[in-house]
Amino acid sequence: MTTPYLVLTVTLIFIFLFIYMVSTVVWGKVVSANDKKAELNKEETRRDFLHVSTITIGAIGSATFMWPFIKSMNPAEDTLALGTTEVDISNIDEGQSITVTWRGKPVFIRKRSKEDIAEAKNAKLSNLPDPEKDSDRVKKEDWLILVGVCTHLGCVPSGQKVSDKKGDFNGWYCPCHGSHYDTSGRIRKGPAPDNMEVPPYKFLNDNTVLIG
């Protein structure tokens, strides 16, 4: 279950409980006010049940009415349909990176040099805040593909251009709050909690990769 649905379900349950309690209390008041007139106690309880049911059905109805409105705020079908990006990677030289957009986010594609790969492989897992093997993060050793969004608060780290600041670990450096990423996109130093995300992708052939 995705988060909005969970939130909605919980909200619905709370609304139901709240309305039921309020209606019981309020109707208790009304009934006791009418007690002076009313003679038959039996009928009182039946009436009570009827009124509480009416109010509850009404409350459920109003809550359900909001459902289409809340649901409509999810990404629309045309947005969902644009979930893939095809990239030509034949022109990227070793050590170079390109940035492409996928679902509106920047995706880093870097052709790693031998040193980069060695560095990424030799990092001690126990030293990492978010331990993950380099081999789990790439499909072909040469190619590192990342969602270029810092896992701290969503800035785009620098390090794509040769002249950029790449941080202490020769990967990426986030200018917002100083997180350092290594040549596998893993967090090494700074406030970010997790490694940069690897998007779903596959190589269609040697020169094209499909992201999403």
Binding site: P68, F69, K71, S72, N74, A76, E77, D78, T79
Partner: peptide, 13 residues
Amino acid sequence: ERIMRDVSFGWLI
């Protein structure tokens, strides 16, 4: 028309 077609429950709204 996008509201009518692509937004969930857009047609209803």
